[in-house]
Amino acid sequence: MNSEGYPSDSVPLQGRYEGFYGQPGVSTVVQCISVSVPPEPPSDHIIWSLCCFLYSNPFCLGLAALIYSIKARDRKVVGDMEGARHYGSTARCLNISATVLVSIMILIFIITFTTVTVLIKQAVQRSNYNYNYNYRG
């Protein structure tokens, strides 16, 4: 990235910098090197989509996310980074939705299972108490 007004060539400096270790009396030349770093390619979230498809596929959201991830990867291979970014973003949203839905369903299952287990245990204890109370042997 070049700032406005500064070329990316080398810029010779006149004079000598006192804090710079070098030969005395020799002018110092500083080269500015500009490095162009390409932007990071858009992510296609294929691993997350595979996990959502295999382990948690509520309302076929995992399958849809997998399809969009594959489309994003195809676009990235072709060189269409904007299309890959769009499909990758859609795949990410679908993966988030699938993960949240499955997490909520697991939480509801745990709460329901715990509640039913406690209620059955209380009912068994009451029936044993009543059985022992009414038993006259």
Rank of each mutant, 00 (worst) to 15 (best):
P39H: 08
R73N: 14
A64K: 11
T115W: 02
V30W: 07
S103Y: 06
Y133F: 09
S36P: 02
S27M: 06
L119M: 15
D74C: 09
R75S: 12
I110C: 14
D9I: 06
D74A: 14
V77A: 07
L63Q: 14
A123I: 01
N130D: 03
C51G: 10
V124M: 04
G88I: 01
G62H: 01
I106D: 05
N132Y: 07
V37W: 11
Y135S: 05
L94C: 08
G22Q: 10
I33R: 15
V78T: 08
W48M: 13
N2C: 13
H86M: 15
G137C: 08
L54P: 00
L13H: 15
A84T: 00
N130W: 04
L94K: 08
S56K: 01
N2I: 01
S103C: 09
C52E: 03
Y135R: 11
A123E: 03
F53W: 02
V78E: 11
I67G: 11
S97Y: 02
G15S: 04
V30S: 13
L13G: 14
F59C: 13
V30H: 13
S56D: 02
S3V: 07
V29Q: 13
R73L: 04
S8N: 04
N130P: 05
N130M: 08
N132D: 06
T115F: 14
C32I: 08
R136N: 07
Y87A: 15
L13T: 11
I120P: 13
V102D: 13
N95M: 00
C51Q: 06
